[in-house]
Write a protein that binds this DNA or RNA. Structure first.
Length: 414
RNA sequence: GGAGAGAUGCCGGAGUGGUCAAACGGGGCGGACUGUAAAUCCGUUGCGCAUCGCGCUACGAAGGUUCGAAUCCUUCUCUCUCCA
């Protein structure tokens, strides 16, 4: 073995160690090592694919897991290929769903995609990324190609999937186009000639289809790397927009901090491991000691907020949180809400009406409920009479529930 | 193409002529307790208003029967199951 050879072996080992950290499953490690070695020898970076379907406005923390992995590949000299699934988004990934996804129109999808790219930049160095929109090739698939694609898989194969077989068993409709989804995603791999594809654990099936299609197209099959799914704020289900248990990448520092603080205790450790750069040994130490869980969580929240907003913002958010929720003081920065003067009668304005007017309650009925249940305060006084009128002078702080504060401003027309 | 079953609120799921704005569970929201954790408990969960009441909208869609329809009839749309 030449000295050069052993240098490369060492480098392969190093990359393998870094890359496989946190990965739940790699298909297969041998193939990955082989590809890495070849890449080092030929100085040709691996093409690492990650596909995201823009189906909502914000990217949440769950997405940062594969994005971070992609960034790691990038730092190791490989080529990140980020696929914006603007075409597949309109089909809808059936993964883990118990019903077909609603279809989105193309304008909406493009809108989402733009904001996704923006947010991805918080984790990824976008200058190094090859961004591809899969409508580029998917919308051009001709009839024959589509048929050819569909003939590459079978119904039985599709029904092996848990989500499909469950729906089938329970009599929930499965539409034909949903079967198409994994094939389209796999086709992307063929088009971009992916060496590796990243995805969450639940993407196993879809990623494997990519391998099949590549082999059938005469390419070397991609390595599939599945990462863990991030558990959401509730501590039970995976983080997802539709469960409302998510933190958006774009959220303000205070918001983000507060949400982390409401995380269930059991989930803290996982989050430390998946979402922060705190070294494993330190995490062990933190959890062995008898630190109050609140302090641990505060640390966690600071780590996470730092990642997206910087250290100062994180420290400020922590302090703010303490002030408002531990010391029960007012937030330092309360959004103002304008009360138009014409809404004020001789007796002022009915509190319930004010709440709906300012968007603090979706309906008068709801506003009434909030008041009756003692969820509404003006300055520090709980007001329980839904019929009460107030005459804001400006400067009063209106509080709804625990988290929502608004400072009243009266808009005087001359 | 034939036969059968079904579509109920955010979700699951009762209800088969008035007492139904619709049981029950989940979820959500508010409150208590606390660490904006968990667990627990209480309240609440279509909308409007002159709010212990009145009115409007709502049980897939449109019509009809009836003093009265989520409930009965007709047509339509959609789903599921079995047969071919």
């Amino acid at each position: 073995m030449s000295p050069d050879d052993s240098r490369i072996t060492r480098e392969v080992d190093r990359q393998m160690a870094l890359l496989s950290r946190g990965a739940v499953q790699i298909i297969s490690e041998e193939e990955l090592a082989k590809k890495l070695r070849r890449s080092l020898l030929s100085k040709k970076p691996l093409r690492v694919k990650l596909g995201v379907d823009p189906t909502a406005h914000d990217l949440h923390l769950g997405f940062t897991l594969p994005l971070s992995k992609l960034q790691l590949f990038s730092e190791l000299g490989h080529r990140p290929v980020l696929i914006i699934g603007d075409a597949t988004a309109m089909v809808g990934d059936p993964t883990g769903k118990n019903a077909a996804r609603p279809k989105l129109d193309h304008d909406t999808v493009r809108d989402f995609a733009k904001s996704y790219l923006d947010q991805a930049g918080r984790v990824l160095d976008m200058d190094r990324v090859e961004v591809r929109w899969n409508s580029e090739w998917l919308t051009r698939l001709g009839f024959q190609e589509l048929i050819a694609l569909m003939s590459r898989s079978t119904v039985a194969r599709m029904l092996e999937r848990d989500d499909f077989s469950k729906r089938h068993r329970e009599g929930v409709p499965i539409y034909i186009h949903e079967f198409l989804y994994p094939l389209l995603q796999g086709h992307d791999s063929v088009v971009v000639e992916a060496d590796v594809e990243l995805g969450g654990q639940d993407q196993l099936f879809n990623l494997l289809v990519g391998r099949d299609l590549q082999v059938q197209a005469g390419q070397e099959p991609q390595v599939c790397m599945m990462g863990p799914l991030l558990v959401g704020l509730d501590g039970h289900r995976k983080m997802s927009k539709s469960y409302g248990n998510y933190i958006g990448v774009n959220e303000a520092a205070n918001e983000m901090f507060g949400k982390v603080m409401s995380l269930s205790d059991e989930t803290m450790r996982t989050w430390f491991e998946l979402l922060t750069c705190v070294p494993q040994e330190e995490i062990e130490r933190l959890f062995e000691g008898d630190t109050h869980p609140r302090e641990l969580k505060d640390r966690l929240a600071r780590e996470i907020v730092t990642r997206f907003h910087g250290k100062e913002a994180a420290a400020a958010a922590s302090e703010e949180f303490r002030r408002v929720f531990a010391n029960k003081e007012l937030p330092s920065d309360i959004p103002e809400a304008v009360v138009p003067e014409e809404a004020l009668g001789a007796e002022g304005i009915r509190l319930t009406r004010l709440l709906t007017l300012l968007g603090l309650a979706p309906s008068n009925k709801e506003a009434r409920r909030l008041v009756e249940q003692g969820g509404v305060r003006v300055d520090d006084d709980v007001i329980r009479d839904p019929a009460s009128e107030i005459t804001p002078q400006g400067g009063e702080v209106l509080r709804v529930g625990k988290k929502r504060f608004v400072k009243l401003v009266v808009n005087r027309m001359k």
